[in-house]
Design a binder for these strands. Structure first.
Lengths: 214, 214
DNA sequence: AAAAAAATTAAACACCCGTTTGACAATCAG
DNA sequence: CTGATTGTCAAACGGGTGTTTAATTTTTTT
């Protein structure tokens, strides 16, 4: 008899990673038990230790799998786009896409950094972040060299954009209150995302390109 | 014989609140055990349940004790300062003071909101936040009515300022990387704080008061 | 098809969790 | 002073934790 069962997503390792991303983000690393992970994934408790060594090993694997993808996207932008300003715009869009679609993952990362309890994870995140940042800084320096951007407190400008992104993703409830939305779904919708990225692009423009009338 | 012992900070309840603020912030609520709390406070494990009912009761008490103070400060600003713009500036300074000096507490709050696992806490935080926000929104509306502020996406502007604050406090390590500092102490120093608040005030000014040369 | 390796399982392990108990001291009201 | 209330303590409770074991099935290799 033919096999009509679904596509057979049956790689235990992959399923555990998926489930872990969802549960860790929703409940926090500490609050999720390996038994919950195993149940949700439909596998035995022992599989976490077997495949990842330990519970934090699972979290480390999750991170190691995701970070390289962002760096790839960034170097695509660096290579395929000509003007620094358009590189920045593309970076904002790229990050918005990454964060809005993978906000569970981002919440995990930010929580780990805020706790700073697991040095191995903190280092992995810090390194990745430094890499991303040096690329972006490169975009801005290029723009200033070419006289397209005015000199400005670049570090704080980047920090502001990052902080806005980060808080939107991590503090959906509070952002809803601030933005006058009645539901988190609204700010994470395509429309909410557009409103937000437009605002950030405008913020960058104000800081990097606009000359004030004194 | 006279009693030369130190000022006798011996109110168990108060000590537990102090210790809880520090430990919860540093390690996260879940990762802190009531035995750690009791040890650090130099009291018996049972005292947490006795004084606060439970471990989360302790966290709730911590929050209930701190929130009203911020609202007091805000209404002082509203009553003692005349122009909307100066009210906003004073609010930024006030919040900077609160956050920089009580960043442990703020980290706890943000983590609780990010997790959204304890409805009672989430509601308390949400309510407080809504109160604070309506006051600030009032400042801005007042400025727009008086023609001092240009119309702008006020919600997003506030969200940006809040996001920057929040991330600076919650993600010290990442902020250091962005700001080119080698140590978290630097960004939390008086100098770092001034740099940051100046930047945020400038950001508000750009969005609310500056007319561009098109 | 037989042997080796890898994956999965149920059960157990040792430990730590938040909370409760009941005995004992301190404080205070009448 | 007496009785009651409150605060503190060591010890125990029941249950949940991440991880390991040893047996068994599945897969791969020879």
């Amino acid at each position: 008899m033919a096999d009509f069962s679904p596509p057979e997503r049956n790689d235990t390792r992959e399923i555990l990673l998926e489930v872990a991303e969802r549960l860790f983000a929703r409940k926090g690393f500490e609050a999720v038990t390996v038994r919950q992970l195993a149940n949700e994934a439909g596998v035995n408790v022992a599989m976490v230790s077997y495949h990842f060594g330990s519970k934090v090993g699972l979290l480390e694997a999750l991170i190691a799998e995701k970070f390289p993808l962002t760096l790839e996207r960034l170097s695509e932008i660096a290579n395929s786009i000509s003007t620094p300003w358009e590189k920045l715009l593309a970076t904002v869009d790229m990050y918005a896409e990454k964060l809005f679609e993978g906000y569970n993952f981002h919440r995990i990362i930010m929580r780990e950094m805020s706790l700073s309890q697991r040095p191995k994870l903190v280092n992995a995140i810090t390194d990745h972040f430094a890499n991303v940042l040096s690329v972006i800084r490169g975009f801005i320096l290029e723009g200033q060299d070419k006289g397209m951007f005015r000199p400005a407190d670049v570090e704080l400008t980047i920090a502001t954009v990052f902080g806005s992104f980060s808080t939107l993703i991590g503090q959906g409830k509070l952002m809803c209150i601030m933005l006058g939305e009645d539901c988190e779904d609204n700010i994470y919708s395509a429309k909410g995302r557009a409103r937000f990225t437009d605002h950030l692009k405008d913020l960058l423009r104000l800081h990097l390109m606009v000359k004030e009338t004194v």
